[in-house]
Simulated assay, not measured.
Amino acid sequence: MGHLSPIRPSPAGPNGAARPLPPARDLAFAWSLIVLIAALAWVLTVGQARDMGVEPGTMGMALPLFLLLWLTMMAAMMLPSMAPVAITWARSISRRSSGWARTARTTEFVCGYLLIWTAFGLLAYGALAWTGSLVDGHPDAGRWIGAAAFALAGIYQLSPLKSLCLRHCRNPMSQLMRYAAFRPPARDLRVGLHHGAYCVGCCAGLMVVLVPLGVMNVAAMAGLAVVIFAEKLWPGGVLLGRALGVAFLVLAVLAPFHRWLLPGLQQAAPSMGGM
């Protein structure tokens, strides 16, 4: 990450000597696995979005289908910025584990991370269902929902909680070192859950803007993925996050008067076949 340096000395062995680091080929395989998962997730997400379009709310999806789609979206958007942490954790894993065992443990870390984002999807589903029903009953309410969503996102981007979580995501070494002392079972899953919770806290404000922009808006998803990557890895990421907070507050003021800013809160036009 931006301030994340690789763990050079491995955890000490029973005799106090440093254990050698995993071979470069094992780390390359872990990198390749994460990149492959993210790439496949993008392909699935874009294909599904092309079929569904951008509409208010949950677009009629039942909760299980929404969570499956949400998980795919989060894998596409979040794994590129999470990969350095997962690989850093893999570097700290004992040399006594085989290459496949280290890969399995890294996979367990990723599963824990995505499990937290799936849980956050429950809140997203509730918010989208509520705002969708409001727009269905009162189409003009969309502009005020959009203004409120941008304002909430802007305030959160400038909040102390955002700063705390972003600080962890940019430099998680202290937490990773603390978890290195934990014992199985499911230690790697717990590490992924813990880091995922900080990541949710870091990105929650950015996720809120999917309400006005549309949860299946591929351009919005791609833009947010770039922002998330830059916030966590770019040296100017902290400043970028604050600038976005100000920009969201400006959009909150403009949203009631410019409906084109709210593609995710506009009802689809009736088809000619229904006339």
Results as ranks from 00 to 15, higher is better:
172 P>F: 04
236 G>I: 09
74 M>S: 13
33 L>S: 11
165 C>K: 08
99 G>L: 04
35 V>M: 14
117 W>L: 03
150 F>P: 02
201 G>H: 12
42 W>N: 09
146 G>T: 09
216 M>Y: 11
65 L>D: 09
149 A>N: 02
146 G>F: 08
215 V>G: 06
32 S>M: 13
33 L>H: 05
178 R>T: 08
252 A>H: 02
6 P>C: 09
257 F>D: 03
129 A>Q: 13
171 N>K: 13
36 L>D: 00
249 L>N: 06
127 A>S: 15
243 A>R: 15
171 N>I: 00
257 F>T: 09
100 W>L: 15
229 F>H: 12
159 S>T: 06
219 A>C: 07
101 A>I: 05
66 F>H: 06
274 G>T: 10
156 Y>V: 07
39 A>P: 04
193 L>W: 12
190 R>G: 12
165 C>Y: 09
44 L>K: 10
148 A>Q: 07
162 K>W: 07
150 F>R: 03
43 V>K: 08
105 R>P: 02
205 G>K: 09
179 Y>M: 15
53 G>Y: 10
80 P>H: 00
190 R>K: 15
77 M>S: 03
60 G>C: 06
172 P>T: 03
46 V>F: 06
70 W>V: 07
116 I>C: 10
253 V>N: 00
175 Q>R: 11
69 L>F: 13
83 A>Y: 00
52 M>Y: 04
17 A>C: 09
185 P>Q: 10
108 E>D: 09
77 M>C: 02
174 S>R: 14
205 G>I: 07
268 A>R: 15
67 L>A: 12
127 A>R: 08
135 V>S: 06
258 H>D: 14
176 L>Y: 07
106 T>N: 14
12 A>E: 15
206 L>C: 05
133 S>F: 02
35 V>S: 14
153 A>L: 07
237 G>K: 08
191 V>D: 02
230 A>L: 15
154 G>R: 01
4 L>V: 05
252 A>S: 12
45 T>E: 14
208 V>D: 01
142 G>Q: 04
5 S>I: 09
